[in-house]
Design a protein around this nucleic acid. Structure first.
Length: 352
RNA sequence: GCAGGGUUAGUGAAGCGGUCAAACACGGCAGACUGUAAAUCUGCUGGCAUAUGCCUUCGUAGGUUCGAAUCCUACACCCUGCA
């Protein structure tokens, strides 16, 4: 029943900022903060790692400023181990404003007019300068539409070439670091919904001296069956000596499925975005729309079985609904705490 | 008292003879959101059936017209000038 015990990472994840129990859900603090939460609030949810994003922090305020202010931990006042995403996802999510070449990707921000260039080397440099404890190789993520146009193979191949470049740059920059000071590098597996490509990609990534394996290119709009099918297919192929990080997943049912199929780490914007939009998860993985009229005079907490700070403090559904209706940011904050805790509890339930 | 302007769905506000159950905004209701261009976006929002349909609405009461939220008359209330 507990597939995790058979395929999951065997040891605790050890980073230079401390050990992390797995499986673990990691909230996204894209621009250096988990939206609407203080580091104390984030810590109260029991999470072990917080993410930040290379693309966003490079654009603003710039990694040099972050470094000047003491690095990501000091800058964000976040003591928990930090993981930066490479900016590879922005190749997908900002595909309308970027241009991909073998060398790297050029982004043109339509708002600021800024042009930024990201390459495997550049992404690793930024992440090292930011001071993250775990970093991710710069990959080429394809959208479903692009996959239909046959870009999957191109992105798959490029991701591996870029991984070798990322790894070389990583080794160059960390050469003089002591073992305990060196951040961990994750390579990314691509291949779209093609099992053959996925298998090859996993073998290539696992053949390299990376510290962890990330599964990318899922949860980009494919069906749940397709995503689960791929996770099920990859599960027996994992090297259990290294942690497996499923990028961008998120939904309680997907987290359960992923963890039961050998995934050790997951990150997602869903708990915080849904929270800001008024949706909480409750026992049974059900969604609760707190803005619904039926909660107007509801004195119960979001989920009586939840041990998050929001539920334990006793904030009522009626109060939360009211704060949402009057657009008070506090509502999103309180529900973010609840949702992150909900996902973390799922992960904790799989730990031995 | 005289002259002029106004009264439109929960609110604000378009419309000024037919294609008007009536733009748009807000509010209301419901939903979506998966490595954050997302405190965002989508649908519905007179009533009843809900697929095309029917019924009652545009201050009130009459009238003109094949046809009125739109034109005319009277009345009610509000605003601005002059008394």
């Amino acid at each position: 029943m507990n597939y995790f015990s058979k395929t999951g990472y065997k040891g605790n994840l050890t980073t230079r900022a401390g050990a992390v129990n797995t499986p673990t859900f990691m909230p996204d603090g894209t621009r250096g903060a988990v939206k609407s939460l203080t580091p104390e609030m984030v810590a109260s949810t029991g999470v072990g790692v917080v993410l930040a994003n290379t693309y966003h922090l490079h654009l603003q305020p710039g990694e040099d400023i972050v470094a000047e202010l003491g690095g990501l931990h000091a800058f964000t006042k976040q003591a928990l181990p930090l993981l930066t995403d490479s900016g590879g996802f922005q190749v997908f999510s900002l595909s309308k404003i970027n241009k991909i070449s073998e060398d790297g990707v050029t982004f043109k921000d339509p708002k600021t007019g800024d042009t930024i260039f990201l390459s495997p080397e550049k992404s690793i440099q930024i992440q090292i300068t930011l001071g993250a404890d775990m970093i991710v190789a710069f990959d080429d993520v394809v959208s479903l539409e692009d996959a239909e146009r046959g870009r999957t193979t191109e992105a798959f191949e490029r991701t591996h070439r870029w991984l070798e470049r990322s790894l070389a740059e990583f080794q160059r920059l960390t050469r003089d670091m002591k073992a305990g000071e060196r951040p961990l590098l994750f390579g990314v597996v691509q291949g779209g919904l093609d099992k053959n490509l996925r298998k090859q990609s996993l073998e290539i990534v696992q053949s390299l001296p990376v510290d962890g394996i990330a599964i990318g290119g899922l949860s980009v709009g494919e069906s749940r069956e397709e995503m689960h099918g791929m996770l099920e297919y990859l599960a027996p192929l994992y090297d259990t000596q290294r942690p497996h990080f499923l990028l961008g997943v998120g939904d309680p049912a997907d987290i359960r499925f992923a963890v039961e199929h050998g995934i050790d780490m997951l990150d997602c914007v869903l708990p915080t975005r849904n929270a800001r939009h008024g949706t909480a998860w409750v026992t049974g993985d059900k969604k609760m729309h707190l803005t619904n009229e039926k909660y107007k005079a509801d004195s119960s907490v979001i989920d009586p079985d939840c041990d998050c700070t929001t539920c334990r403090t006793g904030y009522s559904r009626g109060f939360l609904r009211h704060q949402f209706k009057v657009s008070e940011p506090l509502a999103g904050t309180l529900v973010s705490i609840h949702n992150i805790r909900y996902l973390q509890r799922i992960c904790e339930s799989y730990r031995k």
